[in-house]
Amino acid sequence: MVLAGLWDIKQSSIFNVASPQADKIGAVGNGFLVAATGMFLLVAVLTVYICRRYRARAGGPEPAQTSGNRKLEIMMVGVPLLMVTFFFFWSLKTMSAVLPPRPANRTPDVIITGHQYWWQADYPANRISTANEIHLPVGRKLLVALRAADVIHDWWVPALGAKMDMIPGTENYLWITITRPGTYLGGCSEFCGQEHAWMRIRVIAQEPKDYEQWLVSQAAIDKLPADSLTTKGAGLFMHASCSSCHSIRGTAAVGTDGPDLSHFAGRRTMLTGIQKVSKQNIYLWLLDPQKVKPGAHMPKFIFGRDSLLALTAYLSSLK
């Protein structure tokens, strides 16, 4: 478990990439790092050398008053100019490989919409919708469409390559090919309001057959245990205000303002990455949302303890 956890986390940086897109970006990055280090060392060594060599000495003569050297000046401009030209063409090549134009007739494999402060993921071919934990298959070149529901958000999973803003009123896209299964972490990278910090991303990359299985399980309707608490919770969810913002597949809850809660308890984290899904966390969240995630748009409902326990039981049964 501990090892699996570490593996998870290693995959949140640009150094541990899992897609050819991120790999190509990494190559330019490394090339630049080498050139930049060289340039930096040149300046640093010259600075130190000149400071040591030409320290003023008491009674020393006035130094020669040279005020320029045409040849040296041309070199000072020419060499950096050649270097940036080289990187410009490398950049061009990488850009067209990472972000080629989008064919007009291709439907995106997944549409991700940024909301204050959560992610909506729609899979048009399978007509399913989920939130925050985004399952994707490995080995396929996926077209990911990016939208925003309110303000500007930004999709960034470093291991999978480029980030891209989600801008209300337009649709952006990215190509993502994932090379190995695993959990990849990321986060919203455009400041989007109070809970910008807690718009973490979890991409769960699966082998195609596991992914297909996941799609089937998401399309299914939850079978609820028939105990009285869960039934009461389901009733409350539909008749209190919950269902006007949240959807649960196969029920009367079809709201779209908040995250889709179908199979909610099958996810590992809740509230876009703040905490693990557990009965206690669900209970505390329902008790006072602003205490757990200040600024979230979930209102505080004045539920009694019984109702809270019933709702908690219902939500944690949505596997």
Binding site: I14, A22, K24, I25, V28, G29, F32, A36, V84, F87, F88, W90, S91, T94, M95, V98, D154, W156, P158, G161, A162, K163, M164, S189, E190, F191
Partner: peptide, 14 residues
Amino acid sequence: ISFAIVPIDWQLTD
């Protein structure tokens, strides 16, 4: 300069 190299910017901006 690294931000003027667009692919690097895509990773590291913001």
